[in-house]
């Protein structure tokens, strides 16, 4: 097994296919979910795809050794993304609660006031 893995170590391309799939699933979910919470969850998928990309590019493309220290810029950005996502979820959920209080629904297809 270890040999197999060593022989077939995933390259950057494999990982990018994975994150692209993740991002696309997220986009699909955002455009199709009727429940606002579902939309938000799909959005999280997109964010996570981007965050994984940061880690990947840091791992594969950035020079691993720069004056003896390993570069962690991409990993740091990932932490940021996670933190922002968490904050965004909080705000988003708060909006949904307010919306439900107002309209008694969180179905995004029924929230079409933009056309007026």
């Amino acid at each position: 097994m270890a040999d197999f893995l060593a022989g077939h170590a995933p390259t950057l391309t494999h990982w990018l296919v994975l994150t692209s799939a993740l991002f696309s699933i997220g986009i699909y979910g955002m455009l199709t979910r009727r429940n606002a919470v579902g939309v938000l969850m799909s959005l999280e998928l997109c964010l996570n795809a981007a965050a994984v990309n940061f880690v990947l590019f840091n791992r594969y493309l950035a020079p691993t050794n720069l004056g003896g220290a390993e570069r962690l810029d991409g990993a740091v950005m990932t932490i940021f993304v996670i933190a922002v996502a968490a904050a965004e979820v909080v705000v988003g959920m708060a909006i949904f609660v307010a919306m439900y209080a107002e309209r008694r629904t969180v179905d995004v297809t029924r929230l079409d006031a933009l056309k007026d």
């Binding site: 955002m30 455009l31 199709t32 995004v108 079409d112 006031a113 933009l114 056309k115 007026d116």
Partner: peptide
């Protein structure tokens, strides 16, 4: 085209 549906707009965007 102006449906007011955020998801339609999103589709156009994508």
């Amino acid at each position: 085209l102006q449906t007011g549906q955020v998801q339609t707009y999103g589709s156009w965007l994508v």
